[in-house]
Nucleic acid binder design. Structure first.
Length: 565
RNA sequence: GCGUCUGUAGCUCAGCAGGAUAGAGCAACGGCCUUCUAAGCCGUGGGCCAGGGGUUCGAAUCCCUUCAGGCGCGCCA
């Protein structure tokens, strides 16, 4: 039942506006006491040549209530509509019961493909809290779009190219060995990389040697490629453990190295279209007309750059996946870079430039300032996750010591809590990391929402009344239940909105609201009671639907919902 | 300097496709477990929505401007 359409239909005889225009004007009041829908009559006063309160009074008098709309009231120029709660509740809840985990989804993405470029880690470097945003935002958007019926391609655009790999080979030869590297993993690679930088400051010849080794990688030298492959393998093996913990998977790991042979045609095309010009020895695309600095394509020495690779990658993805949209989840420091390379693609006459989207986010810093792998002032993602799980286990032991699978639940809660916190605020906000807030499990956090989910599960398990059968929804005609139902009703719209704005936090926030409303309801009303199966059933259905929507909502942000905790 | 983002309660933030009395969480203080999970619920205090101007019946929300801060502005990614 689409109530906006229903109301618009009633109003269209009385107002000289189309049904669509009226639907646009209808809004959901800020407070439940003010009804379920409202029509502000201020805009109508010009054409109707009457004061807004007079218009709303008049409309309230002329409109008739019916089975769906219980009451229509005029308040200071607002026309408030109150739905028949029992009908509306039955309608909304049965819809959720029917669609189950599909609730909130749709098929608007049918036959459409979205590429998502996120996480995109660097080879030989540990994953730290600076990688958390791109990883969890990307994963969440991936799940959201799938839920909406899109075909998605998740891409980990590996940072696996550049002189740093020449440096790493030199460092490896000087300070390490195959055994040490295999044993120590990324930590060992980091150790020798840091050592290299310390020593290279005194010894310039080392950088020359590094450049030479990188050249060898480019030329396909056997030893160089072998070592390069080893570093890559070691990194991926370790990083995949983290992705497993987070339950994140990628469809493609094509990174910078993959595009080495795909840039030449792009450069040719740029030349052909007279976009490439020489400037101070380098080759660039001028963007003065668009109030931007030039986009560099080739360095003075003829080497390619980030932009060159990104243009080639965009073209490859278009050719391979024929995407309807391609999202890049990276920090806002790269705003200009993306604006530039999107513009270059437009100038090349490729109409898909409009489907490229930079999904940017704020950056994480330490209280002491920026993070740097080389300086060692980073917090590894592994450590953050482990500490969160550890603390979570401690709390389980305190609160629920008899619980089975304590470790498993602590893992779900601990990891969920990290992801949840990273997706709670608007993407664009900067974050100053602190252990205190990272390990906070109170208030608007994952454990709070997960706890509510477990509570629903517990009630459902405890009751003998089956969900199938007649239900008396009049028992839900109270403010607390209505609040929950309204939030459940709005969930699909929230998912849709999150997709349109590339903003998972909208879902996080909504799920918090649902949990709050249900906890309030739970405290004020008994669910399992002695007032007849039909009433109990209605309340159980409410619990079941709340559980389902929380579960789906959490899933969409990449968090699991335990049945017990 | 140019561009861009941010500025809302002590702290962290929501609200910013204009709408009714600006909301949460944390922190502080005070209540609620012999009944379905107290990782919960309720209450109290706390605001020149950075400043100024404009548009509008109506502005935290849109426009202009000032201030403060972050980020970016050719051979890194």
């Amino acid at each position: 039942m689409d109530y906006k359409k229903l109301i618009a239909g009633k109003l269209s005889d009385l107002i000289e506006l189309s049904n669509e225009e009226i639907e646009e004007m209808l809004e959901i009041p800020s407070k439940a006491e003010m009804g379920d829908f409202a029509l502000p009559c201020f805009k109508l006063s010009k054409t109707m040549r009457k004061a807004p309160p007079m218009i709303s009074d008049m409309l309230a008098e002329q409109l008739k209530t019916d089975g769906n709309i219980q009451k229509i009231q005029s308040v200071n120029g607002y026309l408030n509509f109150y739905l028949n709660k029992a009908n509306a509740s039955a309608d909304i809840l049965s819809k959720i019961m029917d669609s189950n985990e599909q609730y909130g989804g749709s098929d608007i993405g049918k036959d459409k493909t979205i590429c998502l470029d996120y996480s995109s880690i660097n080879i030989a470097k540990p994953m730290h809290i600076g990688h958390l945003s791109t990883t969890v935002i990307g994963n969440s958007l991936n799940r959201i779009y799938k839920h909406l019926g899109y075909n998605t391609i998740s891409i980990n655009h590996l940072g696996d190219w550049g002189t740093q790999f020449g440096k790493l080979i030199v460092a490896y030869k000087l300070y390490s060995s195959k055994e040490q590297v295999e044993q120590g993993g990324i930590a060992e690679l980091t150790r020798i990389y840091v050592q290299y930088h310390t020593d290279a400051e005194e010894n310039e010849a080392m950088d020359d040697e590094a450049r030479a080794w990188f050249k060898k990688i480019e030329m396909g030298d056997k030893e160089a490629l072998e070592l390069f492959g080893l570093f890559k393998e070691i990194t991926l093996e370790e990083v995949n453990k983290l992705y497993d913990m987070l339950e994140i998977k990628f469809d493609s790991y094509n990174g910078e190295a993959f595009y080495q042979d795909k840039m030449e045609p792009i450069i040719g095309e740029l030349k052909e279209k007279n976009l490439l010009v020489e400037d101070q020895g380098a080759m660039v695309v001028k963007l003065d007309e668009y109030n931007m600095p030039p986009c560099m394509i080739l360095k003075k020495d003829g080497a390619t750059l980030y932009s060159t690779r990104d243009i080639a990658a965009a073209q490859y993805r278009k050719d391979t996946y024929d995407f309807d949209k391609c999202l890049y989840v990276t920090a806002y420091q790269q705003d200009l870079h993306f604006k530039q390379f999107f513009k270059v693609i437009e100038l090349m006459g490729k109409d898909y430039y409009n489907d490229l989207v930079h999904v940017n986010y704020g950056y994480v810093s330490m209280e002491e300032g920026a993070m740097s792998t080389r300086k060692g002032n980073i917090i590894k993602l592994k450590d953050l996750l482990n500490r969160s799980v550890e603390k979570s286990l401690q709390i389980v032991n305190e609160k629920n010591p008899d619980l089975e699978n304590k470790e498993e639940i602590a893992t779900t809660v601990g990891i969920g809590s990290v992801i949840f916190a990273a997706l709670k605020n608007n993407r664009i906000k900067d974050i100053v990391f602190s252990w205190d807030s990272a390990l906070s499990f109170e208030g608007e956090t994952a454990p709070y929402v997960q706890y509510t989910h477990a509570r629903c599960a517990s009630v459902l398990e405890k009751s003998d009344v089956l969900l199938d059968g007649d239900a008396d929804y009049s028992t839900l005609d109270n403010q607390d239940a209505n609040k929950v139902i309204t939030l459940l009703r709005d969930f699909p719209e929230v998912v849709q909105n999150a997709a349109e704005k590339y903003e998972p936090s909208l879902i996080t926030r909504h799920v918090i609201e649902i949990a709050k409303a249900f906890n309030k309801y739970y405290f004020e009303h008994r669910i399992i009671d002695e007032d007849g199966d039909e009433k109990v059933r209605a309340r159980l259905i409410l619990s079941k639907c709340t559980k389902q929507v929380i579960k789906t909502g959490l899933y969409l942000i990449g968090v699991k919902a335990p049945d017990k905790m």
